[in-house]
Amino acid sequence: MSSSKVQPRLGNTGFIIFLALLSAFVPLSTDLYLPALPEMTHFFNVPEITMNLTLILFFIFYSIATLFWGPLSDRYGRRPILLIGLVGYLIASILCGIATSATQIILFRILQACGGGVATTVATAVIKDVYVGRKQETTLAIVQSMVVISPAIAPVIGSLLLTFISWRGIFFAQALLGLTVVLGALIFKETHHPEHETISVMRSFGRLGVLLKDPGFTALLLVFSTMSIISLGFISSSSYIYQNTFHLSSQMFSFFFAFNAIGMLLGPLVYIPLSKFIDRFVIIYSCFFLSIVSGGLILMFGLGSPIMFALTQFPATLASSVIRPPGTYLVLKQQENDNGSASSLYSAGGTIMGSVGMVFVSVAEAFPVQAIAFINIVIGAICWLALWLSMKGFKNQIKI
Rank of each mutant, 00 (worst) to 15 (best):
M1L: 10
D214Y: 01
L86V: 14
L299V: 00
T100P: 04
F301G: 00
R78I: 06
I229V: 15
L37Q: 04
F367D: 13
L186M: 15
R78Y: 11
F301M: 12
Q243V: 10
Y285N: 15
V210D: 10
L389N: 02
D31G: 03
S320I: 11
A65Q: 01
T138Q: 12
M146F: 13
Q335D: 15
V223N: 00
M146P: 01
M264D: 11
D129T: 11
M40S: 06
L311R: 02
A258M: 11
F108A: 05
Q334D: 02
V87P: 11
V143R: 09
L37A: 07
G267Q: 04
V143D: 07
P215T: 03
Y242C: 04
A113P: 05
E197H: 12
I283P: 00
S239P: 11
I199W: 06
P326A: 10
A261P: 04
N244G: 10
T198V: 08
G206R: 00
L274F: 11
A154R: 02
I153H: 03
L72S: 07
F367A: 13
R168P: 04
G158H: 06
L389H: 10
P215K: 06
M252H: 15
C96L: 10
L290V: 12
L82I: 01
F256Q: 08
L222W: 12
V270L: 14
V322L: 05
F288R: 02
A175E: 02
I56L: 11
S347C: 09
I17A: 12
S286Y: 06
T30A: 03
I298E: 01
C114Q: 00
T124Q: 15
